[in-house]
Design a protein around this nucleic acid. Sequence first.
DNA 1: CCAACGTGTAAGTTTCGGCTTACATGTTGG
DNA 2: CCAACATGTAAGCCGAAACTTACACGTTGG
Lengths: 114, 114
Amino acid sequence: MVDLAAVLGALADPSRRVLLQRLAHGPATSGQLAELLSVSRPATSQHLQVLQATGLVRATALGRHRWYELAPGPLYLVEQWVRGLADTWAAAPSLDDRAGAPQRTAARREENKP
Amino acid sequence: MVDLAAVLGALADPSRRVLLQRLAHGPATSGQLAELLSVSRPATSQHLQVLQATGLVRATALGRHRWYELAPGPLYLVEQWVRGLADTWAAAPSLDDRAGAPQRTAARREENKP
DNA sequence: CCAACGTGTAAGTTTCGGCTTACATGTTGG
DNA sequence: CCAACATGTAAGCCGAAACTTACACGTTGG
């Protein structure tokens, strides 16, 4: 199954995020993707391997090229986790909720969401 | 400003996610949080420092305790980035869109979203 | 058919993240 | 006022991650 830690770890790297953002616009070959990064081509290939291992990317060989495409499944897993955390927080007490402190209203709390 | 790479890096660690999930239910002291993790107390303190540096957590000293609380701002940043990527992908061509291949309908593509 | 191409793999190095032990600092109950 | 407490900081270690150079392998145009 998909490992949240692995997915977030994959997304943490700037180079890999560049690759994902390019792939969000449509499939690309390994060579095309390597041009986007400022590292060597093998490094790019290794990044793609990481993305593939987490399920964020799918690869299909076609002739002597290799087409990569985005597989957004794991992204929804991240989105879900983040939303769960934010929702839990929205319903939880904060430090201001101690006895004696001026009661914080729901609207007041909304201000913290940028 | 908030650095997306730093935030995602912070979220990638399982220990830190445990801390965040606890803090989503309400504030806690360093000691209370340390009990949740299977690592030493200084390690917990360092994790909290990372979370604080990324803006995911806020700390307020109170007596000889130190209360930590969740600051969800950076979470929305992550959510926003993920949504942007997924939305871009949803509107992009895929490998099956090559000439001759059976045209994929919008409904067909929806199947890829778990 | 074979040279050039596109790409993945291997090996090695350096950098970085997380952990521990040991220490420093500020706070408070008695 | 001071011993015990809650916590942060420093220094050092170790394994994992990311990069590079060198190489291997299948594919295809001429």
